[in-house]
């Protein structure tokens, strides 16, 4: 259905979906860039964040507190996973790291299913963001606009952390040259733990703020994982700006293709990824020679 108003609506919608994808992918890319670990449990962390927020919401009744508590929980959960499992894997081949995070992802999903069952868990949007906003040319759920805003702010915060702080300097140094971090005389492991925590938090945070939109099931992260892969492959693995660009591109592809034929939305996404691989194998904003 290609009409002018629908095109504009889908454009906005693609941006909203894309920003959220960008936030999740940023977490994946930071972890990979710094630790050199591809986190296949990232989709599960998106899901876990949502459930953490759900529990906090049940306990407090406040959406803001749910977001805060859920994010902190994910930061800690990420750090603990790094400390207990991932740390053993830095000296092992990348395939082992992929395998173990894959396993962790399954365990997280099944633990959540064990505790919460398969019934959907719902977190309502905060009262002030419920309802619909008219943008003149279209109407759009207020909360989705809020998600767009929050995700954009979160990306900005991540940007500031990465580009304006000492820890960010270290992380970026790690992305440029992982050997260098050790030379800086820094406790590398503490940084790695923190970075894994931040990466997990980015996914978890996205999971919480997205919970009122999708409602939660233990499998809610499954499709996210594959989409974030496409995002980072398009944007460039390990590139923070690449994750943002890739996220928005992916969001727009999914939205705009649906105007023509929704059945091809996902196929289109993969087709674009393949195209990027041929024209620019390192991704749009990736550095040649890495990975």
């Amino acid at each position: 259905m290609i009409t002018w108003p629908n095109f504009v609506s889908q454009l906005v919608n693609g941006l909203a979906a894309g920003t959220l994808l960008a936030l999740i992918s940023a977490g994946l890319t930071i972890i990979y860039g710094t630790l050199g670990v591809l986190n296949l449990a990232h989709g599960a962390m998106f899901m876990l964040g949502g459930y953490a927020g759900f529990v906090a919401f049940q306990a407090t009744g406040s959406f803001a507190l749910a977001v805060l508590a859920g994010s902190l929980f994910m930061l800690v959960a990420g750090a603990v996973i790094e400390l207990v499992v991932i740390r053993r894997f830095y000296s092992r081949p990348p395939e082992d790291q992929i395998l173990v995070t894959f396993g962790i992802g399954i365990v997280l999903v099944e633990v959540v299913r064990f505790i919460f069952g398969s019934l959907t868990a719902t977190v309502p949007p905060p009262a002030w963001a419920a309802g619909i906003t008219s943008l003149g040319f279209m109407i759009y759920p207020t909360y989705r606009l809020v998600v767009l805003g929050i995700a954009a702010v979160a990306l900005a915060v991540l940007y500031v952390v990465l580009y304006r702080t000492r820890i960010g300097l270290i992380v970026r140094a790690g992305i440029e040259d992982s050997g260098m971090v050790g030379l800086l005389g820094i406790n590398v492991y503490r940084v790695f733990m923190l970075v894994f925590g931040i990466g997990a938090m980015a996914a978890g945070f996205a999971g919480i703020i997205n919970a009122p939109v999708v409602s939660l099931t233990p499998n809610v992260g499954d499709s996210i994982l594959v989409q974030t892969f496409v995002v980072v492959v398009i944007g460039g693995v390990g590139s923070f700006p690449g994750a943002i660009l890739g996220g928005i591109i992916a969001g727009e592809i999914l939205s705009l293709t649906s105007m023509v034929n929704p059945a091809y939305s996902d196929v289109m996404l993969f087709a674009v990824m393949t195209l990027v691989l041929f024209l620019r194998p390192q991704g749009l904003l990736g550095l040649a020679g890495r990975a």
Partner: peptide, 8 residues
């Protein structure tokens, strides 16, 4: 996410 379908 059904947003794009629902917009249509």
């Amino acid at each position: 996410d059904y947003s794009s379908y629902l917009l249509n």
